[in-house]
Computed example of a mutant assay.
Amino acid sequence: MTGIDTTAHDDLIERDDHLDRRGISLVFAEMKGPIKDRLVKFGVGARFGPDHFFPTVNNAVKAYRRTSG
């Protein structure tokens, strides 16, 4: 993800709700600081807390493996 506007924000929230209903957690890897800052600016900081962001895909996979048993 290289940018986000209000339409992308709405789509992201809709996608997260869709996945959540199926027991799937949406997380982000390698997201640049300015994009995370915009997410917070759009008010989704509570929805996507620090546990939803990983510095690399490898870190995200490792975290998934730890929590999924």
Rank of each mutant, 00 (worst) to 15 (best):
S68Y: 06
G33M: 12
L39S: 03
R38G: 05
D16P: 11
E30H: 10
I13T: 06
F54V: 12
D51I: 09
P50F: 07
D5A: 02
G49F: 02
D16M: 12
S25Y: 07
E30S: 14
F54D: 05
D10W: 01
V57K: 05
T7K: 05
A8H: 07
P50S: 13
D10R: 07
I35K: 04
R21Q: 12
D16F: 12
R21M: 11
N59P: 02
F53D: 04
V61S: 02
K62L: 08
T56R: 05
K32Y: 14
V44Y: 00
D11T: 13
D11E: 15
T7P: 01
R15M: 13
V57M: 10
K36T: 14
F42R: 12
R22Q: 15
H52F: 08
M1A: 14
F53K: 06
A29W: 08
H9E: 06
M1P: 07
F28K: 08
P55Q: 12
K41H: 11
L39G: 13
I4S: 07
G45I: 02
R21Y: 09
F42E: 01
F48Y: 14
P55R: 10
M1N: 11
M31E: 08
I24A: 00
M1D: 03
D11H: 14
A46M: 09
V57D: 02
R65S: 07
K62P: 04
L19T: 00
P55F: 05
E30F: 01
V40A: 07
L19M: 10
R15G: 08
V61L: 09
F28I: 04
G69C: 06
R38N: 11
F54G: 07
N58T: 06
V61G: 01
G3C: 11
A63K: 11
G3H: 15
I24V: 03
G69D: 08
N58R: 14
G45P: 05
V61Q: 00
G49K: 06
G49L: 05
T67R: 12
T56V: 03
P34W: 08
P50Q: 11
E30W: 07
V57N: 01
A46P: 01
K41P: 00
V44W: 04
N58V: 02
N59V: 10
Y64N: 13
G45K: 14
R38A: 11
P55S: 08
N58G: 01
R38D: 06
D17S: 09
R38Q: 14
P34R: 09
K32M: 15
V40F: 03
A46C: 07
G33K: 11
F54K: 09
S68G: 06
E30Y: 03
G49Y: 06
N59M: 15
F48V: 08
